[in-house]
Simulated assay, not measured.
Amino acid sequence: GCFWCVETDFENAPGVVDVISGYSGGRRKNPTYENYSTGGHREVALIEYDPREITYAGIVEWLIKHCDPTNPRGQFNDNGKQYSPAIYYADAEQKKTAERVIKAIDEMKVYSRKIRVAIEPRDQFWPAEEYHQDYHHKNSIKYRWFRHQSGRDAFVTRHWGNRAHQLELPGSRPESASGGASNMQELYREWASYKKPSEEELKETLTPLQFRVTQKDGTENAGANPYNKNKKPGIYVDILSGAPLFSSTDKFESGTGWPSFVRPISPLAITTKMDNSNFFLGPRIEVRSRFGDNHLGHVFSDGPRNRGGKRFCMNSAAMRFIPKEDMKKEGYGDFLQFVVEGDGTK
């Protein structure tokens, strides 16, 4: 589809470091926006990703979930082969992987029609003009209107809901990304049975700021919060359930005024969903605690590139910090393995 939208969607994928819009698949050399389609090219995206966070299978799954994979003649308002969905593979193993992922999603019966995404050998990639790169940032209002009226987000939400922002197929994430899936599930077992109190009880338990942030999706003031400058080793847990969310090892100074992390301790600790509540800020990815179902903040794709490229921008009011020296005493001894001394920049 339109590479503006493909670029935006992949910037929100876990482990994706960089996305470049461009052209590929055709005959013409050095194509431009004015002639790429007549030269047989598609609008494509070149994706740089961290294999410790996401696999090639995960990249394919993310693509299928964020387009209309049943339409081989274009995407939404854009018609023609130049907008048709395609996956390019570098070798036979990647081809088999793409076919396996498509078959698995077809068997899930999410779509009423069969998936018809082309799987083709990887060809030379030609970067698009500079004004196309990061178009959603450079022309945010125009982009948001274009995307809204295309029906893309409505289509994705109708078929996947919040699952669009989760990698759920086997092999889409390397086992090391979560420290071993079965091991992590065991570590989080005690929080799986947590029952969230009623709103009336929460008003009694939480401070007004904590209630506004966690229950009403609010945002605390930048800078004036206790964990923004915190550099002590330890973990940050959900203010209600107590489930571990982030480690000081993954914390970094973002300059935003809010505590920022490159990743959660485990994907099991959080859930994500599309947030379209603010037209001027545009679509964002909200982050919530999985077991407490509390609003934590948002995740962006402007984090340190050498550490995965993500910035989990959190509210201090949604978390409680447990210093490393107190973790065992407070029942978090099993999570000491995720805490490394230092300020999180190493």
Results as ranks from 00 to 15, higher is better:
282 G>S: 02
301 S>C: 15
295 H>E: 12
292 G>I: 10
290 R>I: 12
279 F>G: 10
291 F>N: 06
304 P>M: 03
285 I>M: 08
307 R>Y: 09
287 V>F: 15
298 H>C: 11
306 N>E: 13
284 R>F: 01
300 F>W: 04
288 R>L: 06
298 H>I: 08
307 R>L: 06
288 R>E: 01
305 R>N: 09
277 S>N: 11
282 G>F: 07
309 G>L: 12
295 H>L: 02
284 R>E: 00
298 H>T: 14
303 G>R: 02
290 R>M: 11
276 N>L: 08
296 L>A: 10
292 G>C: 03
301 S>E: 14
281 L>S: 08
304 P>R: 06
307 R>C: 02
311 R>E: 03
306 N>W: 04
305 R>A: 14
297 G>A: 06
308 G>H: 06
287 V>N: 07
292 G>P: 00
303 G>F: 15
286 E>N: 02
302 D>M: 03
295 H>N: 06
313 C>W: 09
283 P>F: 00
306 N>A: 07
284 R>N: 04
288 R>I: 09
281 L>V: 03
312 F>G: 11
313 C>E: 13
288 R>F: 03
288 R>V: 14
312 F>M: 12
287 V>M: 08
304 P>G: 06
313 C>R: 05
302 D>T: 12
293 D>N: 13
307 R>Q: 09
313 C>M: 10
283 P>V: 00
309 G>R: 02
282 G>P: 03
281 L>K: 02
307 R>N: 04
305 R>I: 13
309 G>Q: 05
277 S>D: 03
277 S>Y: 12
